[in-house]
Design a binder for these strands. Structure first.
Lengths: 252, 252
DNA sequence: TCGGGTGTTGCATCATGTGCAACGGGCATT
DNA sequence: AATGCCCGTTGCACATGATGCAACACCCGA
């Protein structure tokens, strides 16, 4: 809508892929170098972009600070975290937390199976929306027309033979998930990985987040993983209760 | 330099303080509502801003995804290398760079004392984790329970009489290192070799890598090597600054 | 039904961002 | 040293695109 800002913001994802020099930025934006320079300078003044020693541009520290604040404002995450860790201790597998925002499903927290060391590895990355259990849970809560619109617009990459093949199958799956209140991904993203997930609901009953447990089937079979379902649902419900309880405490 | 972009970007820190509606944004920016609307819409299209159900605007999760992607594509080694070379030129000794990954500490770069050329022979090899200065620095940054778990699982080979003998001593050493912000290895790996090291930190303050200077005590005594500590720390800090993209943001 | 509070749209004005062309500085090649 | 090339940078004339206004649409409470 605003051409100048639009161009400036387009620089950010571009730089997220790696450092670039002025010429590269200008070229990939399709504008004159001098224009790119002024945009970069403005971004720089706001600290969103950093100029490293070889004069190439990178995303700057301010962006990380903003991202931090953005994620802190998602208070579901804070509330959920201890529950996720607890669940991880009980079952030993990887636990994910995700939210839906602007046609994307994003992981916002993750507890690794073995040791809680390398935790933040993939957080922030968009989820395979057509197959992931958490994605199904979040989309299943939308209204029927919303679901249809989104389902039509998606691509259906065949990660494996069990990936959701098309919009029809996806909508059907969403209906099932909506009905039963939990979801699975049985080898739909990676052949050997299965997941079980459950929704976190706010005070009004709407799904605000979704969580799942993932495990490779060399460790546990799909059936065994399903026996964890009650535990997963109990955890999700515990988070929901705590979230609903505190969510009304609004501050100025 | 670019008024439009400048205004648009000023919205972000504003929203970082908490959600705001159109009127508030327009007022605090000092522009007409319609102008603020168009700016917000542009930010929205790029996912940097999210419109919650009460129509107020919030920072979007995309920011988080963006920052995450940038971090993953950041190459500490690339950034550090020139600094390591520079340090090597100043002190003449061997300089190492290491990271912690999967319960191991790995050298990822090395500048030799004599020949500043490639001696990649040992890069990629695991470090003597119980004695090396860089290993102490990297492990010292983990949480207390993590440190304990790891310390228990390690072997404590007695390379020399001054090697760390057991888990208790190691944990104690890590506490010291954590406290003082630098580390040494005085003949703990090879009788005649001493090292001084300092940590490289990311934007969030966590240690992402560690560097050290090593020299045989036939060339310099341990005390002489310690006089290099300020230089080593300054170099590590310079790398940290560049890695985290610290920049001076201008105020309105 | 009204009134005050939002967010939204179309439009005329001109401030602003734009591309051009010329400059300068670093670096490698000769 | 001298040369040429490749970047980043600057000043400027032009017109594009951002701006504020005023009117409209909507929701809620009175």
């Amino acid at each position: 809508m605003s051409q100048t800002v639009d161009r400036a913001l387009s620089i950010l994802p571009l730089l997220a892929q790696g450092p670039a020099d002025l010429g590269q930025v200008a070229e990939r934006l399709g504008v004159h170098k001098s224009t790119a320079l002024r945009l970069l300078r403005t971004l720089h003044e706001h600290g969103l972009v950093y100029r490293q020693e070889d004069q190439r541009y990178r995303l700057g520290a301010r962006l990380f600070a903003l991202a931090q604040e953005a994620v802190e404002n998602l208070d579901v995450r804070e509330i959920a975290h201890t529950h996720l860790v607890e669940l991880n201790e009980q079952c030993g597998h990887t636990v994910h937390l995700a939210v839906y925002e602007e046609n994307e499903v994003l992981y916002i927290d993750k507890v690794e199976s073995r040791y809680p060391v390398r935790m933040y590895s993939r957080i922030g990355k968009p989820v395979a929306i057509t197959v992931a259990a958490v994605a199904k849970l979040l989309l299943a809560d939308l209204t029927e027309p919303e679901r249809r619109v989104i389902a039509e617009r998606l691509d259906y990459p065949l990660y494996t033979s069990r990936s959701t093949p098309n919009a029809g199958a996806f909508l059907k799956e969403l209906a099932v998930v909506r009905e039963q209140g939990w979801a699975t991904d049985l080898g739909g993203h990676e052949e050997s990985i299965n997941c079980v997930g459950a929704p976190v609901r706010g005070a009004d009953g709407r799904v605000v987040a979704a969580m799942s447990v993932s495990a490779p089937n060399v460790v546990v079979t799909a059936e065994e993983l399903l026996t964890l379902l009650p535990l997963v649902r109990r955890t999700a419900d515990a988070i929901s209760r705590e979230y609903s309880g505190t969510t009304h405490a609004k501050k100025a």
